[in-house]
Write a protein that binds this DNA or RNA. Structure first.
Lengths: 279, 279
DNA sequence: TTGCGCGTAAACAGCTTGTAAACAGGGTGG
DNA sequence: CCACCCTGTTTACAAGCTGTTTACGCGCAA
C-alpha cells in the first residue's frame, strides 16, 4: 500500500524522461478540463483525465506526480476519499479545485494532507501554477537522474557522466568538447558556426573567431582516435558542420563527400604518413 | 531546509528536532501577527517576526523553514525581493499573504518560486494550514533518504545513525561530511558544485565559494583513511564530482578511464598522517 | 590562378582544482 | 562564567588542465 506511493514518486522517474511530470485530473467540467489539457500539453507534461473518484490503488499504475480533484465529482463524502489518497499516496501532490467552500472545509483538507485548495471559478493558468509549485517542492526532494546513454555510430554519449565512450573506453573529452559533441549529435542538420558558438559558448561569436574550428578539430581527433573506422563530423564548405556517423567502406570511391581529413591519431605519425595516402 | 536545531546550520537532510519548524513573518498587521504567533506557539513552532523586507543573506542565520510575507510591507517593487528569495534560498518555503491581487500577480509569483499565495482577509488558521502543507511537502524531502543501511564499496552508510562505517569501525564523519557523502552516493551521476551546495547547505552557492571542494577533500581523506584501497569520489574537471566506488587495481597501470582524479601522492601523505589530524 | 575558407599546430594565459592552514562561532565541560 | 574543543568557513598558494589566440599552409570554389 504505502510502497505504492513511493513507486509513483520515484519509480517512473528513473524509467521515464527526468523532467517529465504526470498529472491526473478528476473533474467533469469539460471546458475547464480542455483548457487545462492544452496548457499541460504546452508544458510538455503528461496528463490523464480520470472519470470520477479513482481508488488510490488504481492510481498507482498511472505513476502520477500530482492529482487535481474537484470534490463535487467524488460525491457527498469526499473526506474519506481525500484521506485515503493522503494516507496511501503521501508523495502524490494533491490539489483540490472546486466550488466555493468554507474555511473549515479548507482547513480540514489541508490538515488531511491536501497540498493546496483552489476555489472555482479560477483561471486555469493559476491552477497550473499552483500544481507547478507543489511539484517544484516535491521535486526538490528527488535527485533526478540524467537521461540515458545515446549511441551514435560506435560512440556512446553519456550525459550523466558528461563523457563519451567507445565500449568501455572513455574518449576523454573536455567539457567544451563534450558540449560540442552533444549539440552536434542532437542536431540532425548542418549547423553554422555562429549557431554552434552561441549554443555552446552562450554568447554571440566575434567576427573572425576560430574557436569552433579548433574545437571541431580537437573533437574529430579524439573521435578518430577512439573510433578510427568511422567518420562523424562533416564539413560543409562555406556553411558549417554536420554530425552524422558513417562507417568507412574501405577506401571506395566517394570523393564527393566533404569528408574532412583524418589525421592519424598522434603527432609523430602525422609526420611520417603522407596526407594523400589516407584518402 | 534550515534547521532550528542546536547546531549552527543544518542541511535539508538534518535529523535533529525533526518536528521543530521555524517560520518567519513579514507583516505589519499586529493583530494578525499576534494571532499567528499564538497559533504557532500552540504548534510548538519557533517563529520570528521580521520588521520589513529582510535580505536573503540576513535571513540565512535565522535558519527558517518557511517565510510568510505581506508584500505590501516590502514596497512597490516586491518582485525583485521575491525573486531574490527564491533564487538565493530555493529551499525556503515561501507563502505570500496579502491584500487582494490579480491572477496575473499570483501567477507571476508562483512562477518565480513562491509556494502559495493567500489573499487577505483570511482566517489565520487557514494560513497556518497552508504553511503547514508547504512544510509537510518540504519535510518529505528530508525524511525520504532515511532508509536502511546501504553498502558501497567497503563503506556502509547508515542513514539512521548519520554515520558511515567500514566493518564496525566508524569513519567518524561530521554532519556536513555525512550529508555530502549521502547525497553523492545517492546520485548516480556527476553532480555540479552548485547542485551539491544547494542540496547540502540549503541555499544557493555564492560565486567563488570553495566549501564544496574543501568538504570533498575532507571526505576523501577520511574515506581513504578508512578504506585505503578504494577510490570513491571522482573529479570531473570543469563539471563537478561523481561518487562511484572503485577498487584500486594494483597500482601498476593507471586505468585512465573516465576517472579524472588520481590520488597516488595523496595516499602516501595520508598514510603518514596520524588519525587525529583527520579531524 | 586567386582569394578565401578551413585544417593544423603550438604557445600562452586564465581558470579549475588540490591542499593546507588560519579564523570564527557555538557547544561542552570544568 | 570561563576556557577548551569541535565544526564549519574563509583564505592563500601551487600545480595542472583547458580554452583562446595566433600563425601557417593547404584546398575548395569562382
Amino acid at each position: 500500500m504505502l510502497e505504492a506511493g513511493v513507486t509513483s514518486a520515484e519509480g517512473p522517474i528513473s524509467l521515464k524522461a527526468p523532467g517529465k511530470r504526470r498529472v491526473g485530473i478528476v473533474d467533469r467540467d469539460s471546458g475547464f478540463v480542455q483548457t487545462l489539457r492544452k496548457r499541460l500539453h504546452m508544458l510538455a507534461w503528461d496528463h490523464h483525465v480520470l472519470s470520477g473518484a479513482v481508488t488510490p490503488e488504481a492510481l498507482v499504475p498511472l505513476h502520477l506526480n500530482a492529482l487535481v480533484v474537484d470534490v463535487t465529482v467524488v460525491g457527498t463524502d469526499y473526506w474519506s476519499y481525500l484521506e485515503q489518497l493522503c494516507t496511501r499516496l503521501p508523495t502524490l501532490g494533491l490539489v483540490v479545485c472546486t466550488a466555493p467552500s468554507s474555511v473549515r472545509q479548507r482547513v480540514r483538507a489541508l490538515r488531511l494532507g491536501v497540498d493546496a485548495w483552489v476555489t472555482k471559478p479560477c483561471h486555469p493558468e493559476e491552477l497550473v501554477c499552483v500544481v507547478e509549485a507543489v511539484l517544484r517542492r516535491q521535486r526538490q526532494a528527488e535527485l533526478l537522474p540524467a537521461d540515458g546513454p545515446a549511441t551514435v555510430g560506435e560512440i556512446t554519449i553519456r550525459a550523466d557522466l558528461h563523457q563519451a565512450y567507445v565500449g568501455e573506453r572513455s574518449v576523454d573529452l573536455t567539457v567544451r568538447e563534450f558540449e560540442l559533441l552533444l549539440l552536434l549529435s542532437k542536431a540532425d542538420r548542418v549547423l553554422e558556426r555562429g549557431e554552434i558558438y552561441e549554443r555552446v559558448w552562450g554568447f554571440a561569436m566575434a567576427h573572425g573567431d576560430r574557436s569552433v574550428d579548433v574545437f571541431v578539430r580537437k573533437l574529430r581527433q579524439k573521435l578518430h582516435f577512439a573510433s578510427p573506422s568511422w567518420t562523424y563530423i562533416h564539413t560543409h564548405f562555406g556553411v558549417g558542420y554536420r554530425f552524422a556517423p558513417e562507417p568507412d567502406h574501405g577506401h571506395s570511391v566517394k570523393p564527393r563527400q566533404h569528408v574532412s581529413n583524418d589525421s592519424d591519431h598522434q603527432v609523430e605519425q602525422l609526420a611520417t604518413v603522407p596526407a594523400l595516402a589516407l584518402r
